[in-house]
Design a protein around this nucleic acid. Sequence first.
DNA 1: TACTGTGAAGAACTTCACAGCA
DNA 2: TGCTGTGAAGTTCTTCACAGTA
Lengths: 212, 212
Amino acid sequence: MRKISESTVRRLCGYLRLLEEFQRLGKTTVSSDELAVRGHTTPAQVRKDLSFFGSFGKRGLGYDVLDLTDRLRDIMGLNKTYRVTLIGAGKIGSALVQYRGFSERGFEVVSVYDNDESKVGDSWDSVTVRQVRDLEADLTAEPIHIAVLAIPASVAQEILDRLVKLGVKAVLNFAPTPLSHPSDVTVQNVNMAVELETLSYALRNCRDPDSR
Amino acid sequence: MRKISESTVRRLCGYLRLLEEFQRLGKTTVSSDELAVRGHTTPAQVRKDLSFFGSFGKRGLGYDVLDLTDRLRDIMGLNKTYRVTLIGAGKIGSALVQYRGFSERGFEVVSVYDNDESKVGDSWDSVTVRQVRDLEADLTAEPIHIAVLAIPASVAQEILDRLVKLGVKAVLNFAPTPLSHPSDVTVQNVNMAVELETLSYALRNCRDPDSR
DNA sequence: TACTGTGAAGAACTTCACAGCA
DNA sequence: TGCTGTGAAGTTCTTCACAGTA
């Protein structure tokens, strides 16, 4: 299949969320126009995004809500449960593990690691915090699909290297530093500082934030 | 000034972080090549991004680390303190308020709101959780620069509308729903579900996650 | 008739390649 | 000589516009 751009993939996630909303509202059919208005994009964009994967609509009618939901879930690989491990038992990690959207969408946190002995052994929901030095032994015994890095920038590369050696192919990185990794490993970066600074830039350049 | 793309702005944040790193390492001068390698981009991209704002380098030499840091901080509007309010005193909100990178970079959380009476009055660090119905009175008395929405999708639009009426021009939204807002208001969306689903898509489409 | 699916046009972004300067 | 700054070329992404069909 042709290479799909990251923006398309991210929009597909959005359509999925909107479809679930339309479903709750009792709609059985939806047009590219309705998806576009609700999702702040254009009908052409919606149709183009979907067309990369096939023809899911009916001309003159639109898309069947349930059918399109299923197909998108399939395209996104969301019809299975993913085993997730969290590295770093700090505040961000804690908030993430407790986040319901996580498990609701099939992402199950099966283990938490930290190198701080005072945290090791703590019980988090149903999982116990383990020593990060046991990573190799544990992940070899019970492989995981996705690793979440909620650790300081200074140790992120080292941990990522170890995860890559263990065969992990998908990583969600909260450490504010660019990480090197083989091209068959996907690393998604989430960086709060970048989001805030983007807002700072917007305030700075569109209007003096103190001028109102 | 010409319109700068969001990708450029996000990369500028990255350069800033790298410059601080180079500074800690004692480097006084840096080339577009070094920034590119460390930031996983290209030298041409670095130079082009910077060139939108001026000529900060010396031909044959590179960029002065301290000088470029200053100029970038200025471009990004990071030479001032921003007053931030957090709406939603749940887990995400709690993790955010405690996040040090926040205050270190000049983003000061000055108030927290919730509509849950059992949370109102709680002390969070130095701020007390307030009733969200006091939003109008409080923000009129003491305006803020940035609002962070850590609330359910179902109430996010309503709260945003109230914030817009109060003159807030920058919002960081953690609610997993597209929000409508005037074009002079900047809304940055952070959506954990999208990040995880992007990883799911990558696992699904590059290699069967169970095949290793 | 109403809306999809899609080539083709247009816009935005990235990379190239080289002139110009310390 | 070495590296920046920048038009021009190349590539990717978005929008247009219309043929096709339920």
